[in-house]
C-alpha cells in the first residue's frame, strides 16, 4: 500500500495556469517537449517567462548546487513570480524544497514528475541524504544498508529509509 505522503503524478503533465506576473520554467532533463510547451504557452498568454534547461548528465550536480543557487535567483525576483518544473521526481522534489525554503508556496509552483528513476533518501541513523536507485541501498553517510519507506517529506524532498529490522514498523505517530 502506498502512503499518501508519496506524490501521485498524473500520466500527462497538466499545463501551468496563466497566473502570476513572470515565470521561470525548469526543464530538468524532462521527457519530450513538455517544458518547452509550457514556456511557449505562458509566453503566448502574455507572461514574462524564462526557460532553464538542465541536461540529464548534469542533473545530479545541479541538484547538489541548487540550494544556494535557487536562493540567489529568488532574491532577484518579486511576489508575482511563479516557478514550473518538469523532470524526474527526485529533481522536481529537490527543486520544490528549495522553492519553499525561498518563500514560495504551492499556489506559486507548478510541478510535474514524468518518471521516478531515483529517490533522495534520508537516513535517520546518521542524518545523511543518499541518492538511491533501488529499494535497498548503501547509505552515503554510515554505509549501512537501508530500505526505502513509502514515506516522503515534501518540505525536504526526501524519502525516509532505515535499516530493515523485523520489529521496526515503518510508521509515524500512532
Amino acid at each position: 500500500m502506498t502512503s499518501r505522503s508519496v506524490p501521485q503524478w498524473p500520466d500527462a503533465a497538466p499545463a501551468p495556469p496563466p497566473a502570476g506576473r513572470c515565470w521561470t520554467v525548469f526543464d530538468l532533463a524532462a521527457r519530450g517537449t513538455t517544458a518547452r510547451d509550457w514556456h511557449r504557452r505562458l509566453t503566448v498568454a502574455g507572461l514574462d517567462a524564462e526557460l532553464v534547461t538542465v541536461p540529464e548528465p548534469q542533473l545530479t550536480g545541479w541538484i547538489e548546487a541548487l540550494p544556494p543557487a535557487f536562493g540567489e535567483l529568488a532574491s532577484r525576483r518579486h511576489v508575482g513570480w511563479r516557478v514550473a518544473a518538469v523532470g524526474p521526481e527526485h529533481a522536481v522534489l529537490a527543486l520544490r524544497a528549495c522553492a519553499v525554503e525561498a518563500g514560495l508556496m504551492d499556489a506559486e509552483l507548478h510541478l510535474h514528475a514524468d518518471r521516478r528513476t531515483h529517490r533522495r533518501v534520508y537516513c535517520p541513523h546518521c542524518g545523511a541524504t543518499t541518492l538511491a536507485a533501488g529499494d535497498r541501498f548503501r547509505c552515503a553517510g554510515c554505509a549501512r544498508t537501508l530500505l526505502v519507506h513509502d514515506h516522503v517529506s515534501l518540505s525536504s524532498g526526501r524519502y525516509l529509509g532505515s535499516v530493515d529490522t523485523p520489529d521496526a514498523a515503518p510508521g509515524a505517530a500512532r
Binding site: S3, R4, S5, H149, D150, H151, V152, S153, L154, P170, G171, A172, A173, R174
Partner: peptide, 8 residues
C-alpha cells in the same frame, strides 16, 4: 500533519 500520519 497529514503527511506525518500517512503511514498509520
Amino acid at each position: 500533519f497529514a503527511d506525518l500520519h500517512s503511514p498509520v
